[in-house]
Design a protein around this nucleic acid. Structure first.
Lengths: 239, 239
DNA sequence: GTCGCTCTGATTGTCAACAATCGACAATCA
DNA sequence: TGATTGTCGATTGTTGACAATCAGAGCGAC
């Protein structure tokens, strides 16, 4: 779904104005989030500019965008590289997910119409399909799609924006996680009760379900990360 | 507190590496958040470049940074301008504040040592002082400082990062708000119970206090915004 | 009067060259 | 031998010029 398409009339959409910066940012984000360019990998402007067949101007702007999104880190006059998340970073991602997703369900609780229910089950089925097929990369995307539904439905743009930012880090972590040990594949789905509760009538139960769900995921990855403690390269500063 | 200063030896600190981009982003953010450049105002690259005495390259990167922070909006080949928040945007900011600040207090609840208590009271006193002095601009900063303490203490870098982003929008709104009608000045402080509860022992009471506090602020501004419904120029898309 | 067209000035997007800085290696000296 | 300093290649930061695009003014046809 292209969010940059602006509806003007039935069947008519304004084509998004294209700049090199946008295309580069999009493609670069894709290869980073897919894990093709692993965490910690250096990003060299001149090489990338040659590869994308553009000059360094628009490339640098694309990099600046990804830096602000929290996917890259740069040191002036020295270099740029893909962030590598520490154990603590991952822990923070999980706790933040609980908070945001509970808030999203609170906002969306009264908006769960028939369309929502059907879409939720459709996405769950899609996730199960990718897991059964053993397609790790697709299952990552499917799981993000499933959890993303409530943010789309709740109608809170600022919340969705925040989730988008968090989703990037989560996806980055999952991709690296899978890349390193591929422990996602064999595991069972674990979203049955999530979907069931989301379709039920108990908001408090949903809050508990989210916390439990994230904690399961957190513990699974916690054991994996033990021992390979790498320093966080995530800048806690603002600019 | 300059976080970029790194202690090396007594009296010796590493000077922060400076680039034009950083300085411009800093100064431009300051004038936007102070309200000197009001919401909706156009940002012309060539004019700004002349003003800052740099070329358009680093200036564009600074703009890109502020765009990603959500302070500016740009349309390719057309122009850039300061965002203007709609009524709905402000409503979202307030609801998000409740969620984040409750989460922050949950994380920080067991870390409220003597230093925290003293600092909280110090910042509250500073806020009261600015209000008594009738200094609207200073009182905005003081209130942000007061609410920011819990984020600093909770030790959750991702949460603090999220708060920083939200704070920018809040500050922008407050500045424009004050600029338009200056209704902040005469009003009483209203943080007594907030501080009192934050120093108490009831986390649930704190949650309720936060919700009530934000709702008060929300209602105050709600009436002000009624009727001057301006369309949101905040891009809900990602990048 | 209104619609559509062209032209124009302004603004942004892109490029290639140049300058500043850094990290690493080699040379030098106590 | 160890530490310090000079040098060099690589990389990023910056610049000014040029190209692409847009919004609106002006004008003519209907």
């Amino acid at each position: 779904m292209l969010t940059s398409e602006i509806a003007m009339a039935p069947g008519i959409v304004r084509l998004p104005k294209s700049t090199f910066r946008e295309h580069i940012a999009e493609r670069l984000r894709a290869v980073i989030l897919s894990g093709e360019v692993p965490p910690g990998a250096p990003i060299v402007e001149t090489a990338l500019a040659r590869q994308f067949e553009v000059s360094r101007g628009p490339l640098r702007e694309a990099l600046r965008q990804l830096i602000e999104e929290g996917l890259l880190v740069t040191v002036p006059y020295t270099g740029t590289h893909v962030i590598s998340l520490s154990v603590e970073d991952v822990r923070e991602i999980h706790s933040m997910r609980v908070t945001l997703e509970c808030f999203a369900f609170e906002q969306a609780w009264d908006k769960r119409d028939a369309t929502f229910r059907a879409e939720l089950q459709r996405r769950h089925a899609a996730l199960v399909a990718t897991i059964d097929a053993g397609d790790d990369r697709a299952s990552i995307l499917a799981e993000l799609e499933l959890h993303g539904l409530v943010y789309e439905v709740c109608g809170h743009r600022l919340l969705q924006r925040t989730w988008n930012s968090l989703r990037g880090r989560l996806q980055l972590y999952w991709a690296a996680h899978h890349r390193a040990h591929s422990i996602r594949g064999p595991k069972r789905d674990g979203h049955e009760s999530y979907v069931e509760t989301a379709l039920g009538d108990d908001l408090n139960a949903m809050r508990a379900e989210i916390a439990a769900h994230m904690q399961r995921g957190g513990q699974q990855t916690e054991t994996f990360l033990k021992g390979m403690a790498q320093p966080s390269t995530d800048p806690s500063k603002r600019g």
